[in-house]
Write a protein that binds this DNA or RNA. Structure first.
Lengths: 139, 139
DNA sequence: CTACTATCTCACGTTAACGTCAATGTTATA
DNA sequence: TATAACATTGACGTTAACGTGAGATAGTAG
């Protein structure tokens, strides 16, 4: 498994090194460290970062809100490991139900956001129409 | 034309009075003033505010970005007045073309945002599916 | 091993978007 | 017209999300 140092990750994700350190500080990523303390990011870390960035940019989630989202994907990534470690089926079921709930909430938020964006879009299109009518009259 | 004082507007728009004063400070709204200096908001002001809030919340536009948007709607609202004042047809046409350009850009941004949100949604739905499979296996 | 470059950890600075007094002025009501 | 209930203008405080050095270490190419 290849590992990347902070500068590669920064350019790959279009973030600054400072931002990456900050994201670690608030618990959004947890890259491993080398013997000497240098951060080493896995491809999984990078993928997670890209998703975070997308959610931050496009959904306007705060970094605090994103920590919740991170936990869910984290748990899903650890799924197999948990499978082996957690003998307790009931506990496992509870976790899945919890995650399902979180996802439902997120999907609900996304749907509401979509409909509000559509409203905005319709509004803008109406304005554009009025403008084009205005242009037509000038001929 | 009924006019509203700051507290009514604040509750109507679900903003604080401080926020309304701040929005005026950075030029997002310009309510008239009473003789004594009290802010008086028209229904048009309120409508504009609500659109701003929606764009801020759902599109994640910064207040600075929104100033541009405000100008466009402003110009459209002043359309008739301009019609009478601007005898120069060519100038008028240029203004309309400018506004059309701005709107096109906004619509483009909105479309891109929509597609990225859909990508996020698809991702979340996939996760949910995996979770539900996991739950099914536990039975 | 050396020299050079990249990374690390403080720690203080910055900006947007408000919050929170305090002192003063304005409106509405009895 | 007095007085309670709002409003207004400073002006300083706050929080999130980083920016920007400084000084000390780690990694790497020759």
């Amino acid at each position: 498994m290849t590992l990347y140092k902070i500068d590669e990750v920064a350019t790959a994700c279009n973030l600054t090194k400072r931002t990456l350190r900050y994201y670690e500080e608030i618990g959004l990523v947890s890259p491993q460290r080398s013997e000497g303390g240098t951060r080493l990011y896995s491809q999984t870390d990078i993928d997670r970062l890209k998703k975070i960035i997308n959610a931050r940019d496009v959904l306007g989630f705060s970094l605090q809100e994103l920590q919740h989202y991170v936990k869910v994907t984290e748990m899903l990534n650890d799924q197999r490991e948990q499978y082996r470690n957690t003998t307790d089926e009931e506990e496992r079921r509870q976790q899945l139900i919890e995650m399902n709930k979180t996802l439902d909430q997120q999907l609900h938020m996304v749907d509401e956001k979509l409909s509000r964006i559509y409203a905005f879009k319709a509004d803008a299109e109406l304005l554009r129409q009025r403008i084009q009518e205005g242009l037509a009259k000038l001929n």
